[in-house]
Structures are given as structure tokens and as C-alpha cells.
Nucleic acid binder design. Structure first.
Length: 828
RNA sequence: GCCCUGGUGGCGGAAUCGGUAGACGCGUUGGACUUAAAAUCCAAUUGGGUGAAUAACCCAGUGCCAGUUCAAGUCUGGCCCAGGGCACCA
């Protein structure tokens, strides 16, 4: 065995062997129970970054650990390879987005292999390849047939920088999620997925996800945003041309209905013109035109200053006959509820601000009987009792919500209503590098889905990427013109492509049956492998990808394509990789290139370090000194094995009883097996796993340092300790352990060895340290026999010199004995 | 404003049930080996105090203030701070 540790040489050698022997292929058929470990697949941006390294190392160690524990493990990898950067690169360099993508995939694949990840590459999935996007299109058509995909004219989010529309989930603080450019409103006819049909079940089923963190679940719950309230319809008493018209409002506070003093409709409200008098038309039109011009950012920045104009018309409150004016103001949102709000300034802070500004009347209808407020300075939004509310006076407001809505239902001007904040998912993108939406437009037959046997609708090559503000697909002659599948006449293709989040909403299913050319996947195969047992990825997908994937799984279940209703059983959201306290980014110049780490230290060091310093869910601060420390540790392990190689026998046998110091070492090994196994099993606490590697290594060194000569027993004990250390480290230091394993004379791979077992009796210290406290403070520590009775421990404690000193002349009030641990003597 | 997560040495972080706070590592300091350096190894390292002192001992200490308990980083109540999410959602 070589004296020094040559990481790069070893790593290259074993990566080649593993590839040639197909070490990580996963059979579908097996007697073993299945385990599906999955990392969120990457966008092939060019090179791996440290976030990738962290993500894939975590999942790889989990996969290897489960494999050693006897599972048939599915651990695949693929590429989320449609998307804008490829197209931008194409525009910039005149290159083909496909070529750019394929080259990036090749480079990143090489890097993944250098990291020693145990993927079954036969199952690789690449979303931009026709054998994949054919099925993305097929699934689109199934959703279309089921009525879950539709086209409509709507106000949509437009990013000018990206030249395309965005889903609501992709607008962050009024800006584009990808490029940070301000988002504008545009009115366009676009394709939507009806995710709102699943709002209720997407919310309810969050309770089933016991293996997900609360942070992600509450983010999804907030995004879905369920609220319960009522719809009330208010008749307009003075509409122009004496038209009979109602204004419906949605409210969560039906209990305050007697306090309405005005009503607000959104500037975009559909009936607003019918509600505006000719005298007010000019002011209203001006206000609406201005509102339309404003971007999301401007609307947000005017948060505190509410504006509006009166429409000139009035409604009647059917509860008390009161007449109140109609206004328009942009604090009412057209997309939410009915687009109209009943205003009760006394009990809603927003209405209060608005009423103060425009001097609108206020009427108190809820009071706290112990501390009544006149609501002159602020709205009263706490619970209370109804006043000025006719027959409901004296009722608690919680009860009144129901009673008042029931009255409205009975008299026909309202109903109970559950409302969600979730909007339908806008999936059209005016871009080239995505899966074409498989639809054609025929002058005679209208919108026609492309027949399934004509899939895939391939992306054409003859496109001009230099066009601005419209899809490059419009420039392709071969693509655009086609025939109608219905009448055979002339038709044009849809030129919008699908949001890439559609592609990534079902890729985890495809791994179960990646080469199927008849179906996206066979039902029995997805039912076998899914749900994913452990999903690992960044928190940034808490809403976008994870919500869409949950929706897809539920929709595909309802289509009969699979039989489970949640895709990811357990979710680990790994923290970010930081350097000097802030996120690694090119613009900050604080990135660390994985290639450099591989080159200088090797992949095993990178793997060890990225797991070592923080628990996976927390942010990880990269430090060069830390890498160095891990490299030194691997060298230390290597030297331990190499310098003792001649005395290590893989077929060791331990004959009990052992000499004291040997018994202690064997105990330490069992303690390590137990601790490491438990740490991985409980939330994958790899940082403490690694500290236990170090503890065991230190213990072996210390033991070895005390021996100049080794007898037969010593050699077996040392063999047991070192071989176990290598096995425990094998999921992390995958190359080093394999090399050492072979140098010690093993035939097969260390990665095919079963996980180590511990003996509960041996995983305990032979003696215990009895902690002796006086009045709760530690005063002495005494070695005691593990089997001592409580009385014996107590006697031992009382016998301590310290205790005698401290209890002399005092009364012992009581003595607490914690078996095997501690004695506390309380004195006065 | 609402929701989630967290707050422990110079730093990253340990600490199943309430039972030795600071595992393991990084950094720092001192030492061994060496002509020297690298590498390696050993030791110290929460703060304050008493001691000539290597000894030995005392006090305080897990964001802050209370409480429960023989015993609190851990449990209860109230507050402060940081990070993240949502936000004119009626």
C-alpha cells in the first residue's frame, strides 16, 4: 500500500472501474425493498457551483447509506434543459441553443462523474430532447382534454427583458424571478393551467406531508391563501339609464355589514362604466387610464397613500336600507374576490385610511363592551359585540358572521363563499427554447389540439433569434404553416412554448421508466418507485416547483395514469452555500470553482467538507481553511491504514474476553457505529457523523500509539476498528475507502458491503462517570460500575470528600438519584 | 402588519428524556521533530476572580426579563434581535 494519499489518481481509477462494471445500475426487479433518493435536477448553465455539489453530495450519501442498509435504491440524474439562458446565449453568439445546452450538459456530466456520484446514468432524463418533450406535450393534451388547460384573454405579467409573460409565482416583489427586471401588466390571450381546481386539496394534503418542514408547508399554505367569508350583492339605486344592476362583494367580515359607508370597485372592474354617471366619467376614465399605466412596483410604492374617485352612483344596503356611494380605487384588486369591496372604515384599517383621506362617514358596529372605542383615530379590528346592527345587536361578532350570512342567503342577496389567493398557472411563453404547445389554429375549426400520433411537435431549426418582443418561432416558415387535423385545410401552429416548470413538474416520474417510447411512463413502474422517498433541493423552490409538481401528480392520478397523490414523501431543503457571510455569486466575486477543489484536493475532500460544518438544512459557510482541514483528515486516515496495512486482516476474529484497552477500543467502535447510524437516520445530520469519524480515528491512533508490539489479539482488534472505520466512511469518502479496501486485499467493492451493525451491550461504556451535585451544582465526578444500584450510587456520593466537606453541619433535605448518571444532594 | 426559522466561545457548530454546557473541527498561542521549512505530533484555548504558582479553588455564563423544578441551552409566560416568506387578498 502506498504511503501517501494520491487523491486524483485514486479517484480517476475508481470512477473508470465503476463506470465499466456498471456499479450503480438500478434494476426494476429486486427482492429488496425500494428506496428513491432524488436531487432536484439542474439547469445546465455551464458549470457546477457549490450549491450543486452540496445538494448532490447529500443525496448521494443518503443513496449509498440506504443501499448498504439493503434497499434497492433508485438514484437518477437529469437536466432541466429548456429555458432562457440557452436562447440568450444563442442571440449573443449566433449559436444554436441546442448546441449550447448539449455542450453544457457534457461538461457538467463530466464534473458530476468527477464527484463520484452513484447515478444510474441509463435513466438520464433531458427535458429538451424530443423523446422527453414528446411526453410533455402528450401530458399537456391530456390536461387539455380534461378541461385543465384553457386559453383566455387576461391581464398578465410581462417581463420586457425576457420578452415573455410570467406566472404569478415567478413575480417576486414586482420583479422577474430570473432577471430582476420590473414586471408590467399586459392584456394578452394566453394558455393557463387550472391549478385553482386543486387549491383545496393542495392545501388539505399538506397535512399528509409529515416528512416536509413547516417552513415549506406554511409558505405553500400562504400562497394558496384560503379564506372563508360571504358574497353580498348590493343593488344600485341610481344607475345611468335606470339600469337594474347589482354589485357583488366578497368579505371575510359579514359581521360588519351594517357599518358600510361606501363601496369600492377596482379600476379594471368589468361593469365600471355602467356604474359611472356622465358627470363623473371624465375623472373616472382618467383615474383608470393612470392605474393601467402603473407597473406593479409603482402600485406597491404607493402602498400607504390610497387614491380613488367617486363614480357618482349609489347602492342600497339591504340589511338596513342605508344608501352609500360607489367609488373606484386601486386598493381593490380586480383578480381577487369579485373585484369589489364593501368598505367599513370603523373596522378595517385600509377602509379607515381611505375614509379619513376623502372625509367619508364612519359608523361603529362592533364594540368591546369593556373598553368601547369610537374609532375616531383607528379602526377597531378586534373581536367584540355588535351594535347599531338592528336585530343582531348584542351578538358576538363571531356568531354574527354566520347569522348575518344566513339571513342574506335566506333573502336571496348573498351566500357563503370560500376564496383562494392562488391564481391559475400561466404557462405560455413567447420564447423558442421550450416545449412547443401542441395546438394549431384553423380559420374554420378554431383551436385544434395536435393529434397524439403527430407528436412530438418538433422545434424547427430555421429561426431568427434577433427578433424582439415576439417569439422567434414566428420567423420559422417550416414550423408556422401546417394543416388542420380536423378539416385538412390551412392552419397555423401555436408559437408559444410551455413554461419550463411544466417540464420539471413530471421528470421525477420519467426516471421510473426513462426509455419508454409508448407512454410517458408505465403505470406499474411509477407505482412501484414513487413516491420519492427522499427529495433534496433548495428552498427557493418551496412554492414554484414543489407546488406545480404536487398539482401534476394529483392531476395525473385523476387521469388514471398513476395511483398516488403526493410525489415527495420526505423533503430536505438544504441551506445555501455562503462565502464570507453572503451567498456565492459571480457579481460578488466570492465563488469557489468545484473544478479547482477537485484538482487541488480531490472529490473526497470536497464531499467531506461540504457535509462537515453545518447541518444540511442550514446555510453553509465555505472556508478555505476548512477544506484544508478535511484534506488533512483524509490523509490522517490514509496514514492510519497504510502504516498498519501489514497487520490488518480482513478476516479478523474477535475472541472475548479482551484485554482492557482492547475492550475499550472495541466499545468505541460500537459507539461510533451506533452514533453514525442514528445521526444519518435522524434528519441526515452529516456534520455530527463526520465529527464521529474523527473521534473514532483519534481513538484508534491513541490506542495504536500505546503499543510498540502487536500480538494476535491486538491485530484482530485493530483490523476490526480500521475496517469498520472504512465502511462507515465509505458513503462519504467513496474513492479513498475503495482504494484502501482493495489494498487490504478485498475482492469486491466496499460499496457492496452491508452497513455495519452494533451490539447494544458493547455500545455502552463499561463504567459510568457518576456526577455528584450539591444543591444542583456539580461538585465531584466518580467512576462507578455500570450496574450499580441507586443505593450504591448514593453511598458512593456520600462518601466523596467534597460532599463530606460541603454537607458538614448541614441538614440533608433530600437526595435525588438518576440511575447511571447523577446524584444530587440538597442541603440546608 | 401576518406567518415561518433561528439566537450557545474568536469562528462553524455539539449537547435522545430537563441531569457534567461548549463534542468535533477551524483559528490562535506555546512546545517537540528539523540545519531550516513543509508535513506530522503534543499541549493550552468561555469570561472574571483568589493564589508566588505548574497546583488548587471560587463566581458568572447558552439574546433579555420572570416563572416551574432538587436540577433549565432544553419546559411555561412576556419581550428583544437577525434571516426568510407573504402582503392594499377585503
Amino acid at each position: 500500500m502506498k504511503e501517501s494519499y494520491f487523491a486524483q489518481e485514486i479517484e480517476k481509477k475508481w470512477q473508470k472501474v465503476w463506470e465499466e462494471t456498471g456499479a450503480f445500475k438500478t434494476p426494476d426487479e429486486s427482492d429488496k425493498p425500494k428506496y428513491y433518493a432524488l436531487s432536484m435536477f439542474p439547469y445546465p448553465s455551464g458549470k457546477l457551483h457549490m450549491g450543486h455539489v452540496r445538494n448532490y453530495t447529500i443525496t448521494d450519501v443518503i443513496a449509498r447509506f440506504k443501499k448498504a442498509q439493503g434497499y434497492n435504491v433508485l438514484h437518477p440524474m437529469g437536466w432541466d434543459s429548456f429555458g432562457l439562458p440557452a436562447e440568450n446565449a444563442a442571440m449573443k453568439h449566433g449559436a444554436d441553443p441546442e448546441k449550447w445546452t448539449v455542450e453544457n450538459i457534457a461538461y457538467m456530466t463530466k464534473q458530476l462523474k468527477m464527484l463520484g456520484l452513484s447515478y444510474d446514468w441509463d435513466r438520464e432524463v433531458t427535458t429538451c430532447k424530443p423523446d422527453y418533450y414528446k411526453w410533455t406535450q402528450w401530458l399537456f393534451l391530456q390536461l387539455y382534454k380534461k378541461g385543465l388547460v384553457y386559453k383566455k384573454e387576461a391581464a398578465v405579467n410581462w417581463c420586457d427583458e425576457c420578452g415573455t409573460v410570467l406566472a404569478n409565482e415567478q413575480v417576486i416583489d414586482g420583479k422577474c424571478w430570473r432577471c430582476d427586471h420590473e414586471v408590467e401588466k399586459k392584456y394578452l390571450s394566453q394558455w393557463f393551467v387550472k391549478i385553482t381546481d386543486y387549491a383545496e386539496v393542495l392545501l388539505d394534503d399538506l397535512d399528509k406531508l409529515t416528512g416536509w418542514g413547516d417552513n415549506v408547508k406554511t409558505m405553500q399554505a400562504n400562497w394558496i391563501g384560503k379564506s372563508q367569508g360571504a358574497i353580498f350583492r348590493f343593488p344600485v339605486v341610481d344607475a345611468p339609464n335606470s339600469e337594474k344592476i347589482d354589485v357583488p362583494v366578497y368579505t371575510t367580515r359579514p359581521d360588519t355589514v351594517h357599518g358600510i359607508t361606501y363601496l369600492v370597485v377596482a379600476p379594471e372592474y368589468k361593469d365600471i362604466e355602467k356604474l359611472t354617471t356622465s358627470e363623473n366619467k371624465e375623472a373616472v376614465d382618467a383615474y383608470r387610464a393612470n392605474a393601467r399605466k402603473m407597473t406593479e412596483i409603482e402600485r406597491l410604492s404607493t402602498e400607504r397613500v390610497k387614491t380613488g374617485v367617486p363614480l357618482g352612483t349609489h347602492c342600497k344596503n339591504p340589511f338596513n336600507g342605508e344608501i352609500f356611494p360607489l367609488w373606484t380605487a386601486d386598493y381593490a384588486l380586480v383578480e381577487y374576490g369579485t373585484g369589489a369591496v364593501m368598505a367599513v372604515p370603523t373596522h378595517d384599517t385600509r377602509d379607515f385610511d381611505f375614509a379619513k383621506k376623502y372625509n367619508l362617514p364612519m359608523k361603529v358596529v362592533i364594540q368591546n363592551p369593556e373598553n368601547p372605542s369610537d374609532c375616531k383615530d383607528a379602526a377597531y379590528t378586534e373581536p367584540g359585540v355588535l351594535v347599531n346592527s338592528g336585530e343582531f345587536d348584542g351578538m358576538s361578532n363571531e356568531k354574527a358572521k354566520k347569522a348575518i350570512t344566513e339571513k342574506a342567503v335566506k333573502e336571496g342577496f348573498g351566500e357563503f363563499k370560500t376564496q383562494y389567493r392562488l391564481r391559475d398557472w400561466l404557462i405560455s411563453r413567447q420564447r423558442y427554447w421550450g416545449a412547443p404547445i401542441p395546438v394549431v389554429y384553423c380559420e374554420k375549426c378554431g383551436i385544434q389540439p395536435v393529434p397524439e400520433d403527430q407528436l412530438p411537435v418538433l422545434l424547427p431549426k430555421d429561426v431568427d433569434f434577433s427578433v424582439v418582443g415576439k417569439s422567434p418561432l414566428l420567423t420559422s416558415k417550416t414550423f408556422l404553416e401546417t394543416t388542420c387535423p380536423c378539416c385538412g385545410g390551412k392552419a397555423v401552429r401555436e408559437t408559444d412554448t410551455m413554461d419550463t416548470f411544466i417540464c420539471s413538474s413530471w421528470y421525477y416520474l420519467r426516471y421510473a421508466d426513462a426509455k419508454n417510447d409508448k407512454m410517458p411512463f408505465a403505470k406499474d413502474k411509477v407505482n412501484h418507485w414513487l413516491p420519492v422517498d427522499q427529495y433534496v433541493g433548495g428552498i427557493e423552490h418551496a412554492i414554484l416547483h414543489l407546488l406545480y409538481s404536487r398539482f401534476f401528480t394529483k392531476a395525473l392520478r385523476d387521469l388514471g395514469l398513476l395511483d398516488f397523490d403526493e410525489p415527495f414523501k420526505n423533503l430536505l431543503t438544504q441551506g445555501m452555500v455562503l462565502k464570507d457571510g453572503s451567498k456565492m455569486s459571480k457579481s460578488k466575486g466570492n465563488t469557489v470553482d468545484p473544478d479547482e477543489i477537485f484538482e487541488n484536493y480531490g472529490a473526497d475532500t470536497a464531499r467531506l467538507f461540504i457535509l462537515s460544518d453545518s447541518p444540511p438544512a442550514r446555510d453553509f459557510d465555505w472556508s478555505d481553511a476548512g477544506v484544508e482541514g478535511c484534506y488533512k483528515f483524509l490523509n490522517r486516515v490514509w496514514r492510519l491504514v497504510a502504516s498498519n496495512a501489514d497487520d490488518i486482516n480482513l478476516k479478523y476474529e474477535l475472541k472475548f474476553p479482551l484485554k482492557k484497552e482492547n475492550d475499550d477500543l472495541v466499545r468505541n467502535v460500537h459507539i461510533a457505529i451506533k452514533g453514525i447510524t442514528n445521526d444519518i437516520s435522524n434528519d441526515f445530520q452529516f456534520n455530527t457523523v463526520i465529527s464521529k469519524y474523527r473521534e473514532l480515528t483519534n481513538a484508534i491512533y491513541e490506542w495504536r500509539g500505546k503499543k510498540s508490539q502487536l500480538d494476535a489479539e491486538d491485530k484482530s482488534v485493530m483490523s476490526f476498528a480500521i475496517v469498520t472505520l472504512l465502511k462507515l466512511m465509505s458513503p462519504v469518502a467513496v474513492h479513498l475507502t475503495e482504494e484502501a479496501w482493495h489494498d487490504l486485499g478485498a475482492e469486491g467493492s466496499i460499496h457492496d458491503e452491508p452497513w455495519c451493525e452494533w451490539d447494544e451491550k458493547l455500545a455502552k461504556a463499561s463504567s459510568i462517570t457518576l456526577v455528584v451535585q450539591v444543591n444542583g451544582k456539580v461538585k465531584d465526578k466518580i467512576e462507578a460500575d455500570e450496574a450499580s444500584t441507586e443505593d450504591e450510587l448514593k453511598a458512593l456520593a456520600m462518601n466523596s470528600e467534597k460532599v463530606k466537606e460541603l454537607t458538614e453541619g448541614k441538614t440533608i433535605v433530600k437526595t435525588i438519584v438518576v440511575p447511571k448518571k447523577l446524584v444530587n444532594i440538597v442541603v440546608k
